[in-house]
C-alpha cells in the first residue's frame, strides 16, 4: 500500500447539519489525506450518507466548512462547484448508471462534456476504463443487462472517467454476495495503489473495512459526531469505547440484551 503522505486533501471543519429540529451531524471535524483509503463507519442512521453528501457538495452544512485544496466548497458558486466536481468521482449506492444509455455512453458522457477530445480517443479511454474494472468488451451493454456487481464496477469506471483525485463510494458492497464484494475490495485497493487515487468509502461491512481501510472514522447515532478515529487494527484492539468495541467485535450493544423479553 502506498505510504499515506498526511497531506490533507479534504478537510471537514466543525460540520453541523440540521433538518429542521433534527440534527444529523454535530460538530464533525476530520481530514482526508492524499492517497489514503478512508472508511466512514457507523450504524444505520448515524449520518454517514449525509457526511458523504456534504463532501460531494450535494448538501449544504448548517454550520462549518468543507475545504478542498484550501478552498471552502460550502460557499462556492455553481462554477467553482462544477470545477470541484471534475476532480472527484462518486459511486452511488445503486450505481446510478443511466438506464437509457449503453455502458460506453455512460462512461463517455463526462469525457464528452469536459474535454474536447475526438470520439476515437474517447472510445479508447472508455475501453481502457472498462478494462481497469474488468469489464472489457461490455461497451454496448445496457445497465439493465448487468448483474449487481458488474453495475458497481461500471459505476466505478464512470466515476473514474476524468481521472479524479478523490473517489467517493456510498455503501460499496451493499447488496452484493461475499465473493463479488471481495472482488470489489480488491479492485478498490488495486486502483488506489496503481493510480494513487484518494478514496472515501462509506461502509458497514466489517471484513471489507478491515481489508481496505488505511484509516477509519466512526460516527455515532447518539452524539451525531465522531467517536473514534484510527487504523482498523487500532480500533479493533485498543478502543475502550463500548460502542466502538461492539461494532468491531460484532456484538449487539448491551441495551438490546437488557430489554425485558416476554418469554424467558
Amino acid at each position: 500500500m502506498q505510504s499515506p503522505e498526511h497531506k490533507p486533501i479534504i478537510v471537514v471543519e466543525n460540520a453541523t447539519v440540521r433538518f429542521g429540529s433534527n440534527t444529523v451531524l454535530e460538530n464533525v471535524s476530520f481530514q482526508v489525506n492524499k492517497g489514503e483509503i478512508l472508511v466512514i463507519v457507523g450504524e444505520s442512521g448515524c449520518g454517514k450518507t449525509t457526511l458523504l453528501k456534504i463532501m460531494i457538495g450535494l448538501q449544504k452544512t448548517t454550520a462549518g466548512r468543507v475545504l478542498f485544496r484550501e478552498s471552502n466548497i460550502m460557499n462556492a458558486g455553481q462554477m467553482e462547484l462544477n470545477n470541484y466536481r471534475q476532480n472527484i468521482g462518486v459511486l452511488f449506492q445503486s450505481s446510478a448508471l443511466f438506464s437509457s444509455m449503453t455502458l460506453k455512453e455512460n462512461i463517455a458522457l463526462p469525457l464528452q462534456e469536459y474535454t474536447n477530445l475526438d470520439s476515437a480517443t474517447i472510445d479508447l479511454i472508455v475501453r481502457m476504463k472498462l478494462g481497469m474494472v474488468n469489464l472489457a468488451g461490455y461497451e454496448n451493454h445496457s445497465p439493465a443487462e448487468l448483474s449487481g456487481g458488474m453495475k458497481k464496477r461500471a459505476g466505478i469506471a464512470r466515476a473514474m472517467a476524468l481521472d479524479p483525485i478523490v473517489l467517493f463510494f456510498d455503501e460499496l458492497s451493499a447488496g452484493l454476495d461475499p465473493i463479488t464484494a471481495v472482488e470489489l475490495d480488491d479492485l478498490i485497493i488495486k486502483t488506489n495503489e496503481a493510480l494513487g487515487t484518494t478514496m472515501v468509502v462509506v461502509s458497514h461491512e466489517l471484513q471489507s473495512i478491515c481489508k481496505i481501510a488505511d484509516r477509519v472514522i466512526m460516527l455515532d447515532k447518539a452524539t451525531k459526531g465522531i467517536i473514534a478515529e484510527g487504523t482498523p487494527a487500532d480500533l479493533k484492539e485498543k478502543a475502550t469505547d463500548p460502542r466502538v468495541r461492539s461494532f468491531f467485535l460484532r456484538q449487539a450493544p448491551e441495551h438490546n440484551s437488557q430489554d425485558r423479553s416476554y418469554v424467558r
Binding site: 479508447l124 481502457m128 478494462g131 481497469m132 472489457a136 488495486k190 496503481a194
Partner: peptide, 10 residues
C-alpha cells in the same frame, strides 16, 4: 500497470 492491452483491442 492497470492499462490492459486486451481491453483496448477486444
Amino acid at each position: 500497470s492497470v492499462i490492459y492491452e486486451k481491453a483496448l483491442t477486444r
